[in-house]
C-alpha cells in the first residue's frame, strides 16, 4: 500500500533528477561535443555543424591506435589470467580449512581495498628491487593484482551456490577430478565465468593509477588520454572519450544480461 506524502515524494523525485543530471550531463556534453565542435569567432562562442572530423583524426592518430592495441592486449591477458587465478583461489577456499581460507580471503582482497596509489607504488618498488624492467608484463601483473578480487568474488559466490553434491555425484559415477571440472563444474559456472571475465576486462581497460606507476614506456589508452590532456585539449579527446564510454556501457549491459540469465537459472 502506498502512503500519501506528496511533499516527500516530490522532494525525492527532484533530488533524483538533479542527481542524474549532474551525473550524466558531463558525459552527454562530451558525446555532443565530439560531433559538434565549439567554435570561437571574434569572441563569440558557437557550434560548428555536425562533423565526424574528430573521429577521423582519431583513426589517423597512430599513437592513440597503438595505445588502444596495448590496452586491449593488457585487458585480454589480465582478465584471462585473473579468471584462472580466481578459480584456483575459489576452489582452494571451498575445500580449505577455515583458518587458511579466511587468511586467503583477506590476502586476495587487500590489494583491491588498498588505495591504488599504494598498490601501484608497492608494485613499482618491488619491480625495482628485483630488477624487473617495466613494460607490458608489469602492467599486466599490476592489473591482475587489482582485478583478481573482483573476479574471485563473482566466481566464489557461484561455486558456493553449486555446493558439494554435484561434485560428489560426478565422482560417485566414476569421473576423475579433471572430468568433473570439465564436464560438471565449469559448465555449471559458465555465466559467472563470463560475467567475471567481462567485469575484469572493463576494469583493466579503464585502470589508470596503478598503470601509471608500472607502465614504463608502455602506453595504455587511459594514459594516452591523460597525456593528451596535459599538452592541451584536442577534439579527438571527445571522440575517444565517447568511444570508451560506449564500449564500457556495452560491457556493463552484457554483464547485466549475464547476471539476469544466471538469476533465472538459479530460481
Amino acid at each position: 500500500m502506498k502512503q500519501k506524502a506528496p511533499f516527500i515524494d516530490s522532494l525525492l523525485g527532484f533530488t533524483a533528477v538533479v542527481g542524474l543530471v549532474a551525473l550524466y550531463a558531463p558525459l552527454i556534453a562530451v558525446v555532443v561535443l565530439s560531433f559538434f565542435q565549439i567554435t570561437r569567432l571574434r569572441g563569440v562562442i558557437g557550434f560548428a555543424p555536425f562533423s565526424l572530423e574528430p573521429y577521423a583524426a582519431l583513426v589517423a592518430n597512430h599513437e592513440i591506435l597503438s595505445a588502444l592495441a596495448t590496452s586491449l592486449t593488457v585487458a585480454t591477458i589480465a582478465s584471462l589470467a585473473s579468471l584462472v587465478l580466481a578459480l584456483m583461489f575459489a576452489f582452494y577456499f571451498v575445500t580449505a580449512r577455515r583458518g587458511f581460507g579466511l587468511l586467503m580471503q583477506v590476502m586476495v582482497f587487500l590489494p583491491f581495498l588498498l588505495p591504488p596509489i599504494i598498490t601501484g607504488l608497492a608494485l613499482l618498488i618491488a619491480f625495482r628491487e628485483i630488477d624487473f624492467s617495466r613494460g607490458l608484463a608489469t602492467v599486466i601483473i599490476g592489473h591482475v593484482v587489482f582485478i583478481v578480487p573482483v573476479v574471485y568474488r563473482t566466481v566464489l559466490v557461484r561455486l558456493q551456490l553449486l555446493g558439494r553434491s554435484l561434485t560428489e555425484a560426478s565422482l560417485d559415477l566414476g569421473a576423475s577430478q579433471t572430468q568433473t571440472l570439465v564436464h560438471v563444474i565449469l559448465p555449471q559456472m559458465r555465466p559467472a565465468l563470463i560475467s567475471g571475465l567481462l567485469l575484469a576486462f572493463a576494469i583493466s581497460f579503464d585502470e589508470t593509477l596503478i598503470t601509471l606507476f608500472v607502465a614504463g614506456s608502455e602506453t595504455t589508452l587511459p594514459i594516452r588520454l591523460w597525456a593528451m590532456m596535459r599538452v592541451g585539449f584536442v577534439p579527438e579527446i571527445n571522440a575517444l572519450a565517447t568511444l570508451i564510454l560506449l564500449f564500457t556501457a556495452a560491457i556493463t549491459v552484457a554483464i547485466g544480461l549475464m547476471q539476469r540469465s544466471q538469476g533465472e537459472r538459479a530460481s
Partner: peptide, 29 residues
C-alpha cells in the same frame, strides 16, 4: 577413492546435472 568404488549413490537432492539432458545425465557414468 570415491570414483573407483564399485557402487553408486542416489543423493537426497538428486544432484542432477542441470546443464545436461536426462539422457546425458544417465549416460554420464
Amino acid at each position: 577413492p570415491i570414483n573407483r568404488r564399485p557402487f553408486n549413490t542416489v543423493f537426497q537432492d538428486y544432484a542432477l546435472f542441470h546443464h545436461m539432458s536426462v539422457a546425458e545425465n544417465i549416460g554420464y557414468g
